[in-house]
Amino acid sequence: MPVLPVIAESTEELNEIFKDLHAHPEIGFQERRTAAVVTQKLRDYGVDEVHTEIAETGVVGLIKGKYDGDRRIGLRADMDALPIHEETNLSYASTHPGVMHACGHDSHTTMLLGAAKHLAATRDFAGTAVLIFQPAEEGLGGARGMLKAGLFDRFPCDEIYGMHNSPNGQPGTVSICKGAAMAGASFFDIVVKGKGSHAAMPHQSRDPLMIASALVGSLQSVVSRNVAPLDTCVLSVTQLHAGSAYNVVPDTAELAGTIRYFKDEVIALVEQRMQELCDGFAKAYGVEIRLDLRNVFDVLVNDAALSDAYLEAAADVVGAENVTDNIAPATGSEDFSDMLKVVPGAYCRVGHTGTTGLHNPSFFLDPDVLPVGASIMARVVERRLST
């Protein structure tokens, strides 16, 4: 597999960086150690400018090509980990109990560092490469934070590219879904405020746990009976919290979950029906029900032409037979979508030998994917800023 020479020569270093980041995971907006590692490496590689503390822990590096050019290509990697206790038994497993790189953001950061080393060493392009190391992708608003901090005002980009590892057991494969590729997502919290009582006298209560349980079932009818069958939507209630004793009917019950969607009209319909159900249950049972809905991810939309350009760059590394745009949209979400709303670009997936799914305590990322991803990132800059 023809990874780029500078990156190939740096494979051992990339593995060391990856294992170090994996052993020291940090939750969103707390990636201070990670940002410090990134900052030092960029400076070691001779990156022209390194800017830190963007949206608290974000880092941006600028590399100017050796040829004149005004165009600027952005490359983005996320840095944060998840609140998951690692169960891999790897020699470089997390040293922070309850925190793990279970989504492979440590690999994405390492790949972008590998691309940075190559681009800074060769500079075989006309224009500027903008390297964006983003905090807090996992539902905490890192992309929106960087945008609010003036990311593209300070570091304008003509195009931008992102990447994610794919534990599909197919190393050396690269895929892109053109158009709407990943779902938008809203998170919700529902508080049912009832009336508690002794468990032996439930008739004196307005049992919020029973009401919340019934509401869970009715919420599932929103997708099955209100959303058109050919429109994709996923509504998942993922939390139910109530009570603290065997013999007490509690005062309150709390629900939480997510909605995934691909069309604005679908999420508007779902939110309306959820509010109507909460209002209806509140009236029917004589309780107070409060619904809090908030958009966390927009729909990720890949530009068709730039998707082709990304796959062409990937083909230089893995071969044309190993790239495809024939994949279905994913109902998972990704806040790179917020950047793509401002700057056109594309987001690809790079396969590796791991087969345990993302966000799993046993997730394993094959380090052999590191030079592959790094080379693809560097190659798209060279292609898009060719002389």
Rank of each mutant, 00 (worst) to 15 (best):
Gly196Leu: 03
Gly196His: 03
Gly196Gln: 03
Gly196Lys: 05
Ser197Ala: 15
Ser197Gln: 01
Ala199Gln: 06
Ala199His: 04
Ala199Thr: 05
Ala199Trp: 02
Ala200Ser: 15
Ala200Leu: 05
Met201Gly: 00
Pro202Glu: 01
Pro202Ala: 01
Pro202Gln: 02
Pro202Asp: 00
Pro202Phe: 02
Pro202Cys: 01
His203Cys: 00
Gln204Ile: 01
Gln204Arg: 13
Gln204Ala: 06
Gln204Asn: 13
Gln204Trp: 02
Gln204Leu: 14
Ser205Asn: 03
Ser205Asp: 02
Arg206Ala: 01
Arg206Asn: 01
Arg206Ile: 07
Asp207Pro: 04
Asp207Lys: 06
Asp207Ala: 06
Asp207Tyr: 05
Asp207Gly: 04
Pro208Lys: 09
Leu209Glu: 11
Leu209Cys: 06
Leu209Lys: 09
Leu209Gly: 04
Leu209Met: 13
Leu209His: 04
Met210Lys: 12
Met210Glu: 10
Ile211His: 05
Ile211Arg: 09
Ile211Thr: 07
Ile211Glu: 03
Ile211Gly: 02
Ala212Phe: 10
Ser213Ala: 15
Ser213His: 06
Ser213Asn: 10
Ser213Ile: 12
Ala214Cys: 10
Ala214Met: 14
Ala214Ser: 14
Leu215Thr: 06
Leu215Cys: 03
Leu215Ala: 06
Val216Arg: 10
Val216Asp: 07
Val216Trp: 08
Ser218Asn: 15
Ser218Tyr: 12
Ser218Gly: 05
Ser218Thr: 14
Ser218Val: 11
Ser218Pro: 00
Leu219Ala: 12
Leu219Ile: 15
Leu219Phe: 15
Leu219Trp: 11
Leu219Tyr: 14
Leu219Ser: 11
Leu219Gly: 12
Gln220Ala: 05
Gln220Met: 05
Gln220Trp: 05
Gln220Glu: 10
Ser221Leu: 12
Ser221Trp: 03
Ser221Met: 13
Ser221Asp: 11
Ser221Thr: 15
Ser221Arg: 12
Val222Trp: 08
Val222Lys: 09
Val222Ile: 15
Val222Thr: 08
Val223His: 14
Val223Thr: 09
Val223Gly: 11
Val223Phe: 12
Ser224Val: 06
Arg225Phe: 06
Asn226His: 15
Asn226Met: 10
Val227Thr: 12
Val227Glu: 13
Ala228Tyr: 14
